[in-house]
Amino acid sequence: MADHLASVAMTKDELNILQHSLGLDQHGRGDSRRNHFVTSEGSVDHRHCMALFNRGLMTRTVGFALAGGSDVFTVTGAGREAVKAYSPAPPKLTRSQQRYQQFLRYDGGVTFGEYLRGWR
Rank of each mutant, 00 (worst) to 15 (best):
R117Y: 14
R47N: 12
W119P: 00
V8M: 15
Y100M: 08
G42D: 11
F73K: 01
A82V: 05
Q97V: 09
K84I: 10
G69V: 15
A6K: 10
F112R: 10
V8S: 09
Y106G: 11
E41M: 05
Q97S: 07
D31P: 00
D45V: 05
D107H: 08
F103S: 06
R34A: 06
R120W: 03
G28V: 11
A9Y: 06
T111R: 00
R99T: 14
H36G: 13
P91S: 05
A9W: 03
R29A: 05
I17Y: 01
F112S: 12
G118N: 01
P91Y: 07
V72K: 07
A2I: 15
Y115E: 05
L24I: 06
L57G: 03
D71Q: 04
H48Q: 02
C49N: 01
G56F: 07
E41W: 04
Q101V: 05
A9F: 05
K12S: 11
S21Q: 08
Q102A: 09
G69E: 15
T76V: 14
S40Q: 13
R33E: 09
Y100W: 12
E114V: 09
E81V: 02
L93I: 07
L24N: 04
R29H: 09
A85F: 15
G108L: 06
D3Q: 11
L24A: 08
V83K: 01
H20G: 12
E41A: 07
F112W: 14
G30Q: 02
C49F: 01
E114R: 11
H48N: 02
V44P: 14
G113C: 07
F103L: 09
N35M: 06
Y115L: 07
S87M: 02
G113M: 06
G79N: 01
L18G: 08
V44C: 15
E81I: 03
D107M: 03
A89N: 13
V75D: 00
M58D: 06
E14H: 00
E114M: 09
D13C: 06
F53N: 01
N54K: 10
R47G: 12
L66T: 15
A85D: 04
L15F: 05
T59L: 01
P88H: 01
Q101F: 01
L22Q: 06
L52R: 00
G68Y: 11
R95T: 12
S87D: 01
C49Q: 00
K92W: 07
E81W: 04
R34M: 10
W119N: 13
A9S: 08
F53Y: 10
L116A: 13
H48F: 03
D31T: 06
G42N: 09
A78P: 10
Y86K: 05
R60M: 13
F103P: 04
